[in-house]
Each structure stands twice: as C-alpha cells, then as structure tokens.
C-alpha cells in the first residue's frame, strides 16, 4: 500500500535553515541596526520603571486608570498591583511591563503608518494581508528560533520577538478603521477640496481613532502573551518565574508567576479597552447641558423635533 511517507520529502527545513543562516551571517549590520533603538528604549523604560518607588507607581497608575477608564477599573488596578507586590514578584512585573511599554511604542511607530499605507492602496493591502495572516496564526514560540539566530538570546532579542508579534493587530485595525470611515464623509472632504494629507488628518484618522485604539488593546494583550513566552530565549520578567517553576517542578513558584501575569494582563486589558470605547462621558455632559437649556426655553427634551422648535424660537 502507498503510504504518506513514501512520497519524496521536500527539504524545506534545510532550505529555511540555510536561508536564515545566510541572512544571519551576511546581514549582521542590519540586525544590529534594528537592535540598537530597541535596546536603547527598553533599557530606558526598564530603568525608569524600576526606579519609581512602589507606592508612587501604584498611586500614579491608579490615577491614570481613573482618568482613562472608570473609578471601578482604577480600584481594580490598585488592588491588583498591591497583590502582585505581595506575591513577591514586583521587580519581575516591572521588567515585563517595560517589555510591553517598549513594544507599544514600537508597534505604534511601525503599525499605524503601515496601516495607513495599507488603507490607501488595495494593492499594498493584498500583499500585506496574507503576511499578517501568517504572522498572527503562527504559534508565538515559532518566532523564537529565527530571533535567536538573528539577534541572539536575552531580553533585547525577546523584545524584538514581542514587537514582531504584537504589531499585526495594530496594522490590521488601523487599515480597517480608515476603510470603515463613512464613504459620504470622505466624499464631503474631497468635495470641499481636501488634498491627501488633509483628508487623512482632518477626516480619516480622527474618525478611525476608536478602531485604532481597539487595535492597540489587541497589541497590548499580544505583547503581554509574548513577553511571557520570550522567557524561553532568556528574557527576564514574569515569564522567567513561570519557566523556573516549570524547570524545578515547583508548582507554587509557577503559580505565583501565573497569577501575577493574569492580574497584570487584566489590568492592561481593562484600561486599554476603556480607551477604545467611544467616550460617552463628554457626550452626556454636553447633551445634559443642552437638556437644561431646552428646559429653560420650554422645549421638550425627549423629542428631537423639540430642538428644532427651540432653535426657531431662538431666532
């Protein structure tokens, strides 16, 4: 009987192996050039985050969460951060956070312009889209092998892997957000004589921001996952705690790392998710003001027609 193994086997593995080796050998300066800014920003973030005293960080982050999200999320953030500290992995958490925050910066710098470019041309998007599909479906630790070959081991190569894996959602959502802007509004921009730059900055980007922030949320979560996985190539942080627990069959240690990861991930998710939701607060305040105005003028606030009447009375 004819078996699957009887087929001639393509030597794809050795081709890729040779290809990557060649690239690693011959394009070394390029990878050093890529590594340099990553290393710079990462060490800066890492130093700053570790230098901030624990109580200052908790208070600062809570206030930030309050401002960006809701009081409830702020309270949750404060409790989670304290629990992480009580688990005894505060320093590791800060290292992970520096990996994530650095990744956000690089993903935004690469992903948003890339997404804008994709939205501006179907041809570009048709090329980029399958690449993003591959990047997002490839299991994350598959990235690690070429990263090790090209950048070596340690926290900085880990950061490169994090950025590579976390950028696709932002590219995708930026592209989507711009393409979803109501056609008639884009037409209005053109009809009033907007050039390409004005169209982008006056209409497309402002209206795409909620979607782009949704992409940012995805990027943050992917970065969180990857920052744990890259412990396998020697990156420090919470992932290393889990990996050490695994290596020593120390379930307690692994669980501590796991709990801290979950808490940190939830905090980051909730805060960035609120960022992506349309700001109801501002809108309600103004319409509340409008309602009061209408009540003063004697219109009925619940009917839109009443506003028109109020406007006429105002004449």
């Amino acid at each position: 009987m004819f078996k699957a193994d009887d087929l001639a086997i393509f030597p794809i593995d050795s081709w890729i192996q040779q290809g990557v080796s060649w690239v690693a050998l011959n394009l070394r300066p390029l990878f050093l050039a890529i590594k340099w800014p990553v290393e710079g920003l990462l060490s800066l973030n890492d130093t700053v985050l570790h230098a901030i005293p624990f109580p200052v960080f908790v208070v600062g982050f809570t206030l930030l969460a309050w401002r960006l999200a809701t009081p409830g999320i702020a309270a949750f953030s404060a409790i989670s951060l304290v629990v992480v500290a009580m688990l005894g992995v505060w320093n590791e958490a800060m290292t992970t956070l520096s990996l994530i925050s650095t990744a956000i910066v690089f993903c935004a710098v690469i992903g948003i312009p890339m997404g804008i470019w994709c939205a501006s041309s179907d041809r570009v998007w048709n090329v980029v889209r399958p690449i993003l599909d591959i990047m997002q479906t490839t299991p994350s630790f598959v990235y690690l092998v070429p990263v090790v070959m090209l950048f070596g081991v340690g926290t900085v190569p880990g950061e490169v892997a994090v950025v590579t894996a976390a950028a696709p959602p932002l590219i995708r959502f930026t592209n989507l957000g711009i393409r979803m802007v109501e056609h008639e509004i884009v037409e209005a921009g053109l009809a009033f004589g907007a050039d390409k730059r004005q169209l982008l900055f006056e209409i497309q980007l402002p209206l795409a921001i909620p979607t782009i922030l949704g992409g940012l949320n995805q990027t943050v979560l992917t970065a969180m996952v990857l920052s744990v996985v890259v412990a396998m190539i020697g990156a420090e942080g919470l992932g290393l705690v889990v990996l050490q627990g695994l290596g020593r069959l120390d379930v307690g240690r692994a669980a501590v790392g796991g709990i801290a990861i979950v808490l940190l991930a939830m905090v980051l998710d909730r805060v960035t998710q609120k960022l992506a939701e349309p700001k109801r607060g501002g809108a309600t305040r103004t319409s509340l003001f409008a309602t009061v105005m209408r009540l003063v003028k004697g219109g009925r606030p619940e009917e839109p027609a009443a506003t028109a009447i109020a406007a006429k009375q105002a004449l």
Binding site: E182, E184, I185, E187, A188, L190, A191, F192, G193, E202, I203, P206, L207
Partner: peptide, 17 residues
C-alpha cells in the same frame, strides 16, 4: 472645489467629532 462648487449630502456627512 474649494472656491466655486460646494455640495450638500443626503446623509449630511458632518464630522461627528
């Protein structure tokens, strides 16, 4: 487009932000 011809749209096409 900027100076001679302007346009009014069916669904208003105002910038919501």
């Amino acid at each position: 487009r900027r100076t001679r011809i302007s346009m009014v749209f069916q669904h208003f096409a105002l910038l919501p932000n």
